[in-house]
């Protein structure tokens, strides 16, 4: 049974790799250029590699870009503010290791506990491995928020309004649903990279790398296999898809 699934996966992975279209950066491919019809491919496994040595402590390019792209509002209440991606500083108590600054976002786990606990199946894994919330179904029970060990999810406590500078391509969320990072799924389906990665390449120092882990020719697959990387809380067995380098 396991062998059969593995084989199926390998075949699907190969198919996904073959289907890969536009090359964004050397060795990195995304979906083909905007087509009339797109569909999530089961052969892909979107993942991100964050090089913490390149992530500057005072840089907030990724978080700002995310807020702008996904219409993530700031209410000025620390306990109720919504974060899809946030900057975290890791200090060694004994000061033997240098302080590291890194962004934390939804890890799009292979075994996501948030999906497991969702009573309405609003949280789900898309075929290409992205963990999403179907806000049309979400009843705002917040089990997923409790289940997520990465604090990646937020409940919308307040009414939000569309502003003049809001992104028309992304819907805002109504009060009482849970929202989180979507890996900029609307951009991925359009053949683009997530907004944070793009911003990190532009204004930041290029610490973020995004791509398809199942595509052996992709830059991320090569880097993850050659460089020492860590995931957060691997002991939980959730198999996160955000890899950190230099942690």
């Amino acid at each position: 049974m396991t062998m059969a699934t593995l084989e199926r996966r390998a075949v699907l992975g190969l198919a996904g790799a073959l289907a890969a279209g536009v090359t964004l950066a050397p060795g990195m491919t995304l979906l083909a250029a905007p087509a009339e019809r797109t569909e999530a491919s089961a052969g892909r496994r979107w993942a991100m590699l964050i090089d913490t040595t390149q992530c500057a402590a005072n840089c907030t390019a990724c978080t700002t870009a995310c807020r702008k792209e996904n219409n993530v509002p700031l209410f000025g209440e620390p306990s109720r503010d919504i974060h899809w991606i946030r900057k975290v500083e890791i200090r060694d108590k004994d000061q033997r290791r240098p302080t590291v600054s890194l962004p934390v976002l939804c890890n799009h786990c292979e075994n996501p506990p948030c999906v497991h606990v969702c009573p309405t199946e609003a949280s789900f894994i898309r075929k290409d491995g992205i963990v999403l919330v179907d806000e049309h179904r979400c009843i705002g029970c917040r089990y997923c928020i409790i289940a997520c060990p990465y604090k990646a999810r937020s409940l919308v406590y307040h009414e939000t309004k569309r502003g003049a500078e809001s992104n028309p391509d992304v819907p805002i969320r109504s009060k009482g649903v849970v929202e989180k990072c979507t890996f900029c799924v609307h951009r991925l389906d359009n053949g683009q990279e997530p907004a944070c990665v793009e911003a990190c390449k532009g204004e930041g120092k290029g610490a973020m790398l995004f791509g398809d882990l199942n595509d052996p020719r992709s830059e991320i697959a090569k880097r993850v296999h050659t460089v020492a990387t860590k995931t957060m809380r691997p002991d939980l067995g959730l198999k996160p898809r955000i890899y950190y380098q230099g942690l």
Partner: peptide, 8 residues
């Protein structure tokens, strides 16, 4: 939303 099927 769920399958990523977007028909323009």
């Amino acid at each position: 939303v769920r399958e990523g099927i977007r028909v323009k």
